[in-house]
Design a binder for these strands. Structure first.
Lengths: 192, 192
DNA sequence: TAAAAGCGTTGACAAATGTCAACGAAACCC
DNA sequence: GGGTTTCGTTGACATTTGTCAACGCTTTTA
């Protein structure tokens, strides 16, 4: 279970964890299994954990006044999920996070995570890498949202995230792109 | 000149810099004055500096195939500007950054910045705070882009960033929100 | 295995937003 | 101070996208 995380850390930091470090991480990250449709976080609750996906698929979304869902993030193996703002500030989250497939997670609490950063420098290094990647990806997504047409956003998405296109139904992809499933259906039809 | 940065660091970290630390920062951050419309970064170039705005106003934007500009960021005193992706990866930037008003900046190169992180722990602390805030703000903006109407995005923006509404003309705000200046003009008319 | 739910598509129509052109007022040079 | 640019607005119209309803098909579930 934790091996997936160790591999992930090794891959992004080029470093190897000592057995002691591995033990610290094992203690801080607790495994959790979610069934499809089960919540990791419901809006209004405080996000107590950051979660590493060992196996499965998750989605993060907001719900508007009309009850419509808007996908903020789609995530599969080796991705992290959690509402950063709620997690860091301990404020109620505006988002829901649930499992789209049966999913194996490793959960870490804020206090444990920060303690780990002190004890395991490699983990700090990994976190900084993750933050950088996350930040760059967000910048791209914002730019796409304000400057690309729906069609360009979609073709861009299929190039950047072919794994996600496989894994999630089109109406979730559409929502992620900020359009309706009908519009995406028509975009796909035209670009054949 | 550097005092603005020291104040900023103090404000976000609750820490005071030693004279030695101040000296290190003075050496790494070099002042630069830009006249209105002058570029800090042009797309295709590598972003060599992160810049702290001491006084003035800047904008970051992309230009599409049709030559239209799309505002990615608007920034004034005590904000940072720079293309993180280009800066970190040393890849050509997709963005332009220029001065909207005559602007005083403090520039820091990547190598100097990373060296400073080693020498001045307080600065590392500040950087982490900035990254967190930046990340949270981006999350909100993405959520707004995919789930809010143009009108809601605008009213939201005026609440979150009244300083920017004062400082920048409406057509830049419109672009930031992903709409045309005409649409923004009509939105404002209706909400009176 | 039968019923139900989820998914993608399509058509007809409505609503939101963009485009283009024009205009006046204010701000900004020379 | 006169000419020029910038900015915000408005109108007419085009385009994009959303909404609603319906339909077949597959997957899930009881």
């Amino acid at each position: 279970m934790h091996e997936a995380l160790f591999n992930y850390i090794g891959q992004y930091t080029q470093a190897t964890l000592t057995p002691q470090e591995q033990e610290l991480i094992r203690n801080a990250f607790v495994p959790k299994r979610l069934r499809k449709r089960q919540y990791l976080l419901q809006s209004g609750d405080i996000c107590r954990y950051m979660a590493f996906i060992v196996k499965g698929a998750m989605r993060q979304y907001s719900v508007d006044e009309k009850g419509a869902e808007h996908i903020v993030q789609l995530a599969i193996e080796n991705w992290w999920v959690g509402d950063r703002e709620s997690f860091l500030m301990l404020t109620p989250s505006a988002f829901n996070i649930d499992a789209w497939e049966d999913t194996d997670l490793l959960l870490v609490e804020k206090a444990h995570l920060f303690q780990l950063y002190e004890q395991v420098p490699t983990l700090t290094k990994m976190a900084r890498q993750m933050d950088d990647r996350h930040s760059m990806a967000n910048q791209r997504r914002i730019n796409a949202a304000i400057s690309f047409s729906a069609e360009k956003r979609y073709t861009d998405f299929t190039l950047q995230h072919p794994e996600l296109v496989q894994r999630f139904p089109q109406h979730l992809i559409a929502s992620y792109l900020g359009i309706t499933k009908e519009t995406l259906s028509r975009i796909r039809k035209h670009s054949l």
